[in-house]
């Protein structure tokens, strides 16, 4: 079991529209048996935060192509992408680069 972790999630470039227009979210992920990684986080976002049209944010088990992910202001490609193990107080940013958000 891992303890619950607190995260700051940010959405930008139009991605915030899918979250009631709110850019910054402070969330607490509940404790679970496996450590939290981004793959789990995306499922959690889909179930708990996304307000509409989940296909505009998540496709398959990853983010929609064209949405950038930053972990603590660094490219998630450097952090292992979906397998990055989330730490308490991490800052995860999603920026849409698509036209019209």
């Amino acid at each position: 079991m891992v303890a619950p972790i607190n995260l700051q999630l940010e959405f930008g470039g139009g991605a915030e529209l899918l979250f009631d227009g709110v850019k910054k979210h402070h969330v607490t992920l509940p404790s679970q048996s496996d450590p939290w990684d981004i793959k789990h986080l995306l499922v959690w976002i889909k179930d708990n935060l996304l307000k509409e049209r989940s296909e505009l944010f998540i496709q398959g088990d990853t983010v929609r192509p064209g949405i950038l992910v930053l972990v603590n202001d660094a490219d998630w490609e450097l952090m292992g992408e979906l397998d990055y193990k989330l730490q308490d107080q991490d800052n995860i940013v999603f920026i849409s680069t698509l036209h019209g958000g």
Binding site: G13, L17, R53, D73, I95
Partner: peptide, 18 residues
Amino acid sequence: NRLFNVPSVFIPALDTKA
């Protein structure tokens, strides 16, 4: 823009949420 705090404004376009 993110790393050097360049502001930007999101304005919905014709193809937003299309």
